[in-house]
Amino acid sequence: MEQRLLGKTGRNVSVIGLGTWQLGADWGTVDAAEAQAILAASAEAGVTFFDTADVYGDGRSEQAIGAFLAANPDLDITVATKMGRRVEQRPENYTLENFRAWTDRSRRNLGVDQLDLVQLHCPPTAVYSNAEVYDALDTLVAEGAIRHYGVSVERVDEAMEALRHEGTATVQIILNAFRLKPLDELLPAAQAAGVGIITRVPLASGLLSGKYTPETTFAPDDHRNYNRSGSAFDVGETFSGVDFEEGLKAVAEFEQLVPDGVSTAQAALAWVAAQDGVSTVIPGARSVEQARANAEAASVGGIDATFDVGVHEIYDRYFRAAIHPRW
């Protein structure tokens, strides 16, 4: 699989990575054996980048990855985790003391002495412009607890602020066919600054898989059920913030763009990967088959200029007015 430089980390990672939120919780249940099988299938398909967080299943996602790494010590896998959402979301909680506690816990969960990459996990907006926060992160690097740090953001303006700080190695942001704003300013700015872009929610929480209908239901513990109004966390994390029914209409048009022999999901992933400045795309997978199909998106063809124009036209008709100003 194609490998790309992950910003200031200096590491090369697979253009299709693996997001592992679903291995912890919030997408229905994935048992421990299936989680290991998904990680193994991804690695076998050439995936060398796993993204997780300390709050995914209260550490279960990190622990699953840790068990996999321990069982496969010869694999060259870069693991990015996140921190900051184990406490009330107030800027004053983003301190060196808390950072040390959170990274120590993640190191135990992952079974490593040093974390490859730690990202602030969509903190309050004021955190991104607080110099003391970056000083604390620099201290963790100097102490050897982490190799590099980055930020995970909800909004483009938060990402742009993070780019101003020299130590920021990566930015993680939602980018998909229904969320185009990062293309305007952020991706060119990140390229100029040498900062890697990790793109999450590339399938708009599964909408862009083309598998959903108006009758589709989700489990009570699936965020696509309980967070549609944004009552648990930013609504932009669920279906990229688009209305489910409107999203289905847009997907029907998106499917008309998809080349023969390519699945809707693979086309959506390949389009994100084709954007200048994207380092890696991190779809989730709840089965071995899905993990393999996602990885295959790295080599699909037919995602050309005509396809790109179609994506922009669909976005302009259905989503620009609601999505562009908000995120």
Rank of each mutant, 00 (worst) to 15 (best):
K8G: 00
K8S: 06
R11D: 12
R11G: 02
S14M: 05
V15H: 10
I16D: 08
Q22G: 13
L23H: 00
W27F: 15
D31S: 03
A33T: 15
E34I: 10
A35D: 05
Q36L: 08
A40M: 15
A41L: 04
A43G: 03
E44H: 03
T48Y: 05
F49W: 03
D51G: 11
V55W: 04
G57E: 09
S61T: 04
E62T: 01
I65D: 01
G66V: 07
A67Q: 13
P73Y: 12
D76W: 09
D76K: 15
T78K: 07
A80N: 07
V87H: 14
R90A: 15
R90I: 09
R90N: 10
P91F: 11
F99M: 13
F99N: 05
A101N: 11
R105P: 00
R107M: 09
G111M: 09
G111E: 10
G111Y: 05
H121T: 02
C122S: 15
A126W: 02
Y128C: 10
Y128T: 10
S129F: 11
A131S: 12
V133R: 08
L137W: 02
L137H: 01
D138M: 03
D138K: 06
D138C: 02
D138G: 11
V141G: 04
V141I: 14
E143D: 15
A145G: 05
I146A: 02
H148W: 10
Y149F: 07
Y149P: 03
E154W: 13
A159T: 06
A159R: 04
R164Q: 15
H165V: 11
E166V: 11
G167W: 07
A169H: 02
A169T: 03
A169R: 03
V171Q: 05
Q172W: 00
F178I: 15
R179S: 12
L180I: 10
P182F: 06
D184N: 13
D184Y: 12
L187H: 09
A189D: 07
Q191I: 10
A192T: 04
A204K: 00
G206T: 05
G206W: 01
G206R: 01
K211S: 14
Y212M: 06
T213M: 01
P214H: 07
T217V: 13
T217H: 12
P220H: 11
S229E: 14
S229G: 11
S231N: 10
S231M: 08
A232R: 15
F233L: 07
V235K: 14
E237F: 13
T238E: 03
F239S: 05
D243R: 10
F244C: 06
E245A: 15
E245C: 14
A250K: 07
A252Y: 03
F254W: 06
L257Y: 03
P259K: 05
T264Y: 06
A268P: 00
V272P: 01
V272H: 00
V272F: 01
A274D: 13
G277S: 04
S279H: 07
A285D: 02
A285G: 06
E289L: 08
Q290M: 08
A293F: 01
N294H: 04
N294I: 07
A295S: 08
E296S: 11
A297W: 01
A298R: 03
A298E: 11
G301W: 05
D304Y: 06
A305R: 07
T306F: 06
F307C: 04
F307I: 04
G310Y: 02
E313W: 02
E313Q: 12
Y315R: 09
Y318A: 06
A322K: 12
I323D: 11
P325V: 00
